[in-house]
Computed example of a mutant assay.
Amino acid sequence: MEAVRKGERAISDQVLIQKVKSGNNHAFRLLVEKYRNDLFRTIYAVLRNQKETEDATQEVFIKIYTSLSQYENQGFKTWITRIAVNHAIDVKRKQNRSQEDIIDVAENEILRTRWESVEDEIIHKEKVSRVREKLHELPENYRNVIYDFYIADKTYQQMAAEQNVQVKTIETKLYRARNWMKKHWKEDDFS
């Protein structure tokens, strides 16, 4: 009884295929209804994503429809399953390639950012080093305020509290120290 059903199915597939080749779109809808679940399961086994599988299944049926003229009666279910598996593998490859591209872009961005931050850090350290070398040339009353502000990164408030003076006094000392440096040092000394 099972063999008869398979034979009937093959015959009805052949009849439906002939009708589709003759331009009967309803016959193709019957084929889609008949094999939709089988192809969905086959494609899902490769993609493991329902939305992607739904899209791929539709694309496979379009491929089947456009390739039906090349079908040579060699087992319809086997033929459409092969198309489905090949298409699913292609989709999976594209996904992997795009994920690799995204990863490459992210890695390059991270490396570039690290490189820039390392480069900035080195430049900053060199400038601090040059300032430290020149610091001993400053008059002592300016040296401490320049060191605290530029090298120790202290705020005006912190410096005023440590020296037990007003913030305005610190501003004045920094102003005078900067003027002294402008008069006595050239910009080339620091570049």
Rank of each mutant, 00 (worst) to 15 (best):
F149W: 11
E121M: 12
K127V: 00
E140I: 13
A3P: 03
K154C: 05
I123Q: 15
I146M: 06
H26R: 11
K154Q: 09
A152V: 03
Q99H: 04
E171C: 01
K168D: 14
V105H: 09
S67E: 05
Y156F: 07
A27I: 00
H124Q: 15
N144I: 03
R178W: 02
D90E: 11
Y142E: 05
M181E: 06
T113G: 12
E119N: 10
S22P: 00
V167N: 04
V118D: 10
L16Q: 03
A3V: 12
Q70F: 09
A3T: 06
S67T: 03
D90K: 09
K186Q: 13
D38V: 08
S191E: 09
A88G: 08
I122C: 10
R178D: 01
L31I: 01
K134V: 01
I123A: 11
L31C: 07
R112H: 14
K19N: 03
N24T: 03
S22C: 14
L47Q: 02
Y175F: 15
I89T: 12
L138R: 04
V60D: 00
K34I: 01
D188E: 15
I123K: 15
Q58Y: 06
T53S: 15
S22N: 15
I64R: 03
I170T: 10
I123D: 11
N24Y: 08
A27V: 07
R132M: 15
K154I: 05
M181K: 00
V105T: 12
T42P: 01
Q50N: 12
E107K: 13
V15Y: 05
R9M: 14
T172G: 07
L135C: 10
R36S: 11
E187T: 13
R82S: 14
V128S: 09
T113M: 10
Q58S: 02
I43C: 04
I170Y: 04
A106T: 09
I64W: 02
E187K: 13
D55V: 02
K63Q: 10
Y142G: 00
S129Q: 15
S117N: 14
A84Y: 02
I110R: 14
E54S: 03
E2S: 07
I146T: 02
A56P: 11
Y44A: 02
F28T: 04
W185V: 02
Q14Y: 06
T53C: 06
